[in-house]
Structures are given as structure tokens and as C-alpha cells.
Amino acid sequence: MPDRTPQIRVTAMPTDLNPYGGVFGGWLMSQMALGAGALASREGEGKAVVVSATDFAFPGAMAVGDELSVYCSIAGTGQTSVTILAEGIARERHGEATRKVASGTFKFVLLDDEGRPRAVKSEGLRTR
């Protein structure tokens, strides 16, 4: 795995499982949205709300107790929007083995204090 810092890191718990005993894909998507939102708000220097989520894939499975790290990067910007790529990497509970379990793309719109879309400061956001 490349040397990079996750936006968030969380452990899958029994309440995060689907009826078949695997980690629920919706839980994975929500964790990725939280990580992507943290990056959008920090880099956008304010409120950012998700307006779309696309291109989801779940190439691996997680078990209860596995640790999920969510890595995000800015893929592009619009006049008021930021597009972020998110990747979920699971680490087994009692070891160091990792595997990609999810990926997706989120688009956020930056909002002002009145809740209206505001312009992206081009010098403030770094595409990575």
C-alpha cells in the first residue's frame, strides 16, 4: 500500500453487518462519504454537501473487527463543486494483511453561511 494518510479509520462492528454476516455495503459507502466530506470541507475551507455518489465498486469483503481506512483525493473542481475519489482499504483484525474493499466518486458543492453555493477558491484546492 502506498505511504499515505487516511481521512478516517474505523473498525467494523457487529451492528455493521448484513443478514449474511458480511460488512454491509451501505456502511462502507457511508464511511467513504464521511472521509470524502472531511477532505471537501477542509480543502474547500467551509461547508460542503454531497450532491452525488457514483462509480461504486466493492472488490473485496470485510469481516467484523477488520479496520477500514478511507483514502481520498481531489479529482477535479467546478465553479462551486469538488469531485473526490474515495478508496476503502481493509486491514485484517489480527494481522497486517490489507485489501481494497470499496471505491467510489463523490461530488460536493461548497456552501456559504446562508446555505447557497459559493465559488471554489482555485488556489485553495489541490488536485492530487
Rank of each mutant, 00 (worst) to 15 (best):
S103G: 12
Q31I: 07
P6R: 01
F106H: 09
A75H: 03
G21E: 02
T98F: 02
V51M: 11
E45G: 13
V23G: 06
M13I: 09
R99H: 09
A40S: 07
L111Q: 07
A119V: 13
G21I: 11
L110G: 06
G76W: 00
I8K: 04
A36M: 11
S52P: 04
G22L: 11
F58V: 03
K107E: 13
G78Q: 04
S41I: 02
V51K: 08
V120T: 09
V82C: 09
L85S: 10
I84V: 15
S30T: 14
A86N: 03
D112E: 10
T105N: 05
S69H: 05
L28H: 04
V82Y: 00
F106T: 01
V64H: 09
K121D: 15
S103F: 07
T105W: 01
V70I: 15
A38S: 10
P14Y: 12
Y71D: 01
D55R: 10
Y71R: 02
I74Q: 07
K107D: 07
Q7C: 10
L39P: 01
D16V: 00
R42K: 12
E96D: 14
L68M: 10
Q79P: 06
L111N: 11
G46M: 08
R42L: 12
G78P: 07
S30R: 14
I84E: 03
P19R: 02
D16Y: 06
C72V: 03
S81L: 08
S52W: 02
D112R: 10
T105F: 02
P117L: 05
V50T: 14
G76I: 09
K100F: 00
G88E: 07
V101K: 04
L39V: 07
V23D: 12
T11V: 15
E67I: 02
P19V: 00
A90P: 01
G22Y: 13
A40N: 02
S103K: 12
K100H: 13
G35R: 08
G35L: 04
M29R: 08
R9K: 13
T11G: 03
V51G: 07
Y20H: 15
A86H: 06
Q79D: 13
S122E: 14
T83G: 10
L110Q: 05
S69T: 06
A63D: 10
Q79F: 10
M62S: 15
E87M: 07
T11I: 15
P59T: 10
K47V: 12
L111V: 05
G26C: 09
S103D: 11
A40Y: 03
S103W: 05
E67W: 04
P117E: 11
N18E: 12
M32R: 03
K107N: 13
F58T: 03
S81T: 11
M13K: 13
V70L: 04
E123I: 06
V109K: 01
Q31C: 08
G37H: 04
S69M: 10
F108H: 11
R116G: 03
M32Q: 00
F24R: 05
T15F: 08
G21A: 05
I89Q: 00
L110I: 07
E96A: 13
T80L: 08
S30L: 11
C72P: 05
V64A: 13
T98Q: 14
P14S: 07
A36D: 02
R116K: 15
M13D: 06
I84T: 01
A38R: 15
